[in-house]
Amino acid sequence: MTRKRQRLIGLLSAGVVLGVAATLVFQALDDTLVFFYSPTQAAERQFRPGEAIRLGGLVKAESVQHSDDSLKVWFVVTDGANEVTVTFDGILPDLFRDEQGVVAEGSFLPDGTFAATEVLARHDENYMPKEVADALREQGMFVGEDGEKSY
């Protein structure tokens, strides 16, 4: 009986130690675990032009401009507080559209715009049929576009 209790206490204390250690490690690694920076985070960090990073946010409504004679595209990535103009020359994923999440890989140019070498779409956690989305939009209570939405 006492041996069992000893082992149980040993296991629980090892678990606590492991949990604390893991928390510390993940806190220390926080920066490397982040897949992308929002425009606000990028502004805080003042990335040098040419430094390779990923920039993520929502595609600002009606900000997308396509070139007439090439695949070149311009759009604005916003997190609500800050925004960055992104240029990209390539094929956009299916989900790339206004007010949808996007992650651009590339670097800032000296003029503050962001030159993307790759653009990934990020979808949100909402799933619904088109009719429901349309009805919600009509009633002006579309859940995906405001509130505490993550970018």
Partner: peptide
């Protein structure tokens, strides 16, 4: 952390 994967539904 910011991930490409979307949050839980």
């Amino acid at each position: 952390w910011n991930t490409l994967h979307q949050p839980a539904s």
